[in-house]
């Protein structure tokens, strides 16, 4: 289990408890995200992986617990401090979330125009550098509607790194990508982490892809951290959780049946059973 003494953690989550619609999404969740590494957050659908990213960025606040990013307790930050923190965090949305009124260039330039008063020549050079890094400098004047899913994801990535963030959050970056686009995104994640040392948190289901880029994996289920280690350690399936999740078993700690009342009673056979 993580400890407070872990100085290498960029993100420290302690006893995080969040209730949504009367259901505990997190029930005392504690975990660390090491600085400079790629960490994957995995778990069954609906277990709160994206919700955890929203807590890290302050879009949602927990009912209890602390969540420190670079030493700052996010749930207690005011608006100005939160926005200052977000300027140091890149977020890649599952659907890319490009601004549809602006072309590719202006999408990538958007954070710079909002937060930095740069000469146009310098701004242009920064944007083109980021677009070159994701291989889309030639697409600078295309509109988002003219991009494929993989291209849109890469533009969103260029936008996320335009301020050279300390942390990038990837929300399901591999969903809906063909093998070529998938490998391009994998290569970009690896390059950004290894050349710039950006800490990365990856929410994904594709274990084969995660194995190629992640240094560590946290498996969360039922609102808690149930397993943690390198992808290889978890792939061995030494616990019921890892066996079911990485083995793709239909039933196990995560039940096949959504919790429900008595089946016979629901079918009206109560009297017959008695």
């Amino acid at each position: 289990m993580p400890t407070d003494a872990d100085a290498d953690a960029l993100v420290e989550v302690r006893d995080l408890t969040t209730m949504l619609s009367g259901k505990a999404v997190f029930d005392g969740l504690s975990l660390d995200i090491p600085r400079g590494k790629v960490t994957a957050i995995m778990g069954p659908s609906g277990t709160g992986k994206t919700t955890l990213l929203k807590h890290i960025t302050g879009q949602m606040r927990p009912d209890r617990g602390t969540l420190r990013v670079d030493g700052q307790n996010v749930p207690t930050l005011g608006r100005e401090a939160l926005y200052a923190l977000r300027e140091r965090i890149g977020y890649l949305f599952q659907n890319s979330a490009l601004l549809t009124d602006y072309d590719v260039f202006e999408n990538v330039a958007f954070p710079l125009r909002q937060h930095a008063r740069l000469p146009e020549v310098l701004l242009r050079n920064i944007v083109l550098t980021k677009l070159q890094a994701v291989g889309l400098r030639g697409a600078a004047r295309l509109m988002p509607s003219e991009l494929s899913g993989g291209m849109a994801r890469r533009v969103a990535l260029a936008r996320a790194i335009v301020f050279d963030p300390m942390l990038i959050l990837y929300d399901e970056p591999f969903v809906g990508l063909d093998p070529i686009a998938l490998n391009q995104v994998l290569k970009l994640i690896r390059t950004l982490n290894r050349t710039l040392g950006i800490t990365s948190i990856l929410v994904a289901h594709e274990f084969a892809a995660v194995r190629q880029v992640a240094d560590g994996v946290h498996l969360i289920a039922n609102g808690r951290l149930v397993a943690s280690g390198t992808p290889e350690q978890l792939a061995r399936g030494e616990s019921d959780w890892t066996r079911q999740f990485f083995g793709g078993e239909a039933d196990g700690p995560v039940p096949f049946q959504y919790p429900a009342g008595d089946y016979a009673e629901a079918l009206g056979f109560t009297g017959a059973a008695a």
Binding site: T57, I89, P111
Partner: peptide, 13 residues
Amino acid sequence: TDQLAAMEMMAVD
């Protein structure tokens, strides 16, 4: 399409 959320994440109100 998460454009408002993306703005929030880029520290733009």
